[in-house]
């Protein structure tokens, strides 16, 4: 394939995964079963790299997708929003095996965005007057009180896109987009799994969601269906 030959960012999955160090903070895209980088997650499980802090919306199901990282004891902690689909999270937490930091989903998305665009913290209404407000700074603007949320930055982001061109410009597919574009902005090393690699110039510049400057490494996935 010509596009693959001309793509300097393209790597094999094991080579890309080999760049992730033990103990890394790793942002991983996806919402439920849509838009998670399945091949990269599989590769990360095979690598056995552990002590990871996984920053994602949810953690899939037990022993499936992202859930497999926890079943494999590769996780030191979780930062995310919704673990109802994976009862192993509560078990591991109650046994003291992992830490869990729950963040409201909108605050999570914005905290990742903030990290990507150079904003160290922001104020939000979400969580005021609840358990998650404990220990957080509050400030009143007008008639309302807000919570201070710090940006969430990571060492690595593993994201999923539909198509990349050889430079690494990305477009997405329906609700498989979710957190992927924002996570692409918020890590030192960004590895994108894509269904398809196309020649430079083939993607309409008006349609590009993630510009290539955010993407360090591309890998080819299987093409989710």
């Amino acid at each position: 394939m010509d596009a693959a030959k001309n793509c300097r960012k393209l790597k094999a999955i094991d080579e890309a995964i080999g760049m992730i160090k033990k103990g890394s903070r790793v942002l991983i895209g996806g919402f439920g079963n849509a838009g998670d980088p399945k091949k990269l997650i599989e590769g990360l499980c095979i690598s056995g790299t552990d002590e990871l802090v996984v920053m994602s919306n949810d953690l899939g199901s037990p022993n499936e997708g992202l859930g497999k990282l926890l079943s494999n004891n590769q996780v030191r902690g979780l930062i995310g929003t919704y673990y109802n689909w994976n009862p192993e999270v509560a078990m591991a937490y109650n046994e003291g095996k992992i830490f869990v930091e729950l963040v409201p989903q909108g605050t999570f998305a914005e905290a990742v965005r903030a990290a990507g665009v150079g904003i160290p913290a922001f104020y939000t209404l979400s969580g005021v007057g609840t358990e998650i407000a404990k220990g957080k700074e509050e400030k009143t603007f007008g008639e309302k009180t807000y919570l201070l949320q710090e940006a969430l930055k990571a060492d690595v982001a593993l994201i999923k896109a539909h198509k990349a061109d050889v430079l690494g410009n990305l477009v997405y597919y329906k609700t498989a987009r979710n957190f992927n574009p924002v996570m692409a902005m918020a890590a030192d090393l960004v590895i994108a799994e894509v269904d398809e690699l196309v020649p430079g110039g083939e993607l309409d510049p008006e349609s590009i969601v993630t510009p290539h400057i955010f993407v360090d490494v591309l890998v080819l996935g299987g093409g989710d269906r």
Partner: peptide, 13 residues
């Protein structure tokens, strides 16, 4: 413990 609030806190505020 720990099921998670998802987007509920953001939606209702």
């Amino acid at each position: 413990m720990v099921p998670g609030m998802g987007g509920a806190m953001d939606l209702v505020t």
